[in-house]
Design a protein around this nucleic acid. Structure first.
Length: 260
DNA sequence: ATTGTGGCCTGCCCGC
DNA sequence: TGCGGGCAGGCCACAA
């Protein structure tokens, strides 16, 4: 399930292997995968003959800068990026590791013979041209405490929902949200705007720490809480049985003893 | 503007 | 052994 750590791995892969190569062909067999009212012909006309000069990332959105446009790649929950057959992320929690031709939703072939592919069994990702980058909030991996306070604002929404709102803070998905709140000892249901002083500082510290740890370990599914997100699971800190509920529309697990 | 809800997509796993 | 239902969740449309 690509969250920020996985997309950052995709970005590095693209930076290493996709820049400076002339695009010779666009293969976009799945019209549903092209977002923003574009079709395969539009994408091909825009991209063929160009090359990428930079690979950027905002939250979970990968941005490839071509000569006169930007390609945005969204991976949803089950998307994978492969370049010349290489995969940046060995394992995704909720997607098959299989590589099937029918799961190729979008591909670019380079003039040198290699190519870039998006594999996505569930078709939850997509391709955008010139995405509106300003619609995304601060990137969660580098957010400062002051920016986090702005992102939380005076919102009455549940803290977890606000953290996952990409317009305010970009890059936090369900697993990272649960892990960071668990580490910070904060109840996912409490109002986002109610965080003061030490609570906000603790959230900031553990949000950055969670993202750094999970990136080092190899993905958003490598959190300390993750193995216990199951019926009967207990808090690895204090042994209390975890609570499962829906918060912000997402399945949420937390420890009723130490998260307040 | 804010917040919450439902639907989309498909593979997988469980119980019958 | 096959089948149906539930589940996973990122994103978006929509309602109030």
């Amino acid at each position: 399930m690509p969250e920020l750590p996985e997309v950052e791995a995709y970005r590095r892969l693209a930076e290493e292997r996709a820049l400076g190569r002339v695009i010779e062909e666009v293969v976009a067999p799945d019209a549903w995968y092209l977002k923003g009212g574009i079709d395969a012909e539009t994408v091909a006309t825009a991209l063929v003959g160009q090359m990428f000069s930079a690979a950027r990332r905002i939250g979970k959105l990968l941005l490839l800068d071509a000569d006169d446009l930007v390609v945005g790649l969204r991976f949803g929950m089950t998307g994978r990026l492969m370049i010349d057959g290489a995969d940046a992320v060995g394992e995704l929690l909720y997607t098959s590791k299989a590589d099937r031709p029918e799961w190729d939703r979008f591909s670019l072939r380079f003039a040198d013979g290699g190519g870039l592919r998006m594999q996505d069994p569930r078709r939850l990702g997509g391709v955008l041209l010139d995405p509106e980058e300003a619609r995304l909030g601060a990137d969660a991996a580098t957010v400062t405490l002051a920016m986090l306070r702005v992102a939380l604002g005076a919102s009455t929404a549940p803290l977890k929902a606000r953290l996952m709102n990409q317009a305010h803070l970009a890059g936090v998905g369900n697993l990272i949200a649960d892990e960071a709140l668990w580490r910070a000892g904060l109840d996912p249901r409490r109002p986002a705007g109610g965080l003061q002083g030490a609570d906000a500082r603790r959230l900031h510290k553990h949000l950055l720490g969670t993202i750094a740890d999970l990136s080092d370990r190899g993905g958003s599914h490598t959190g300390d809480l993750r193995p216990h997100r199951a019926p009967g699971g207990r808090c690895p800190k204090d042994g209390t049985e975890l609570v499962r509920d829906t918060v912000g529309g997402r399945t949420t697990w937390w420890c009723p003893k130490h998260q307040h």
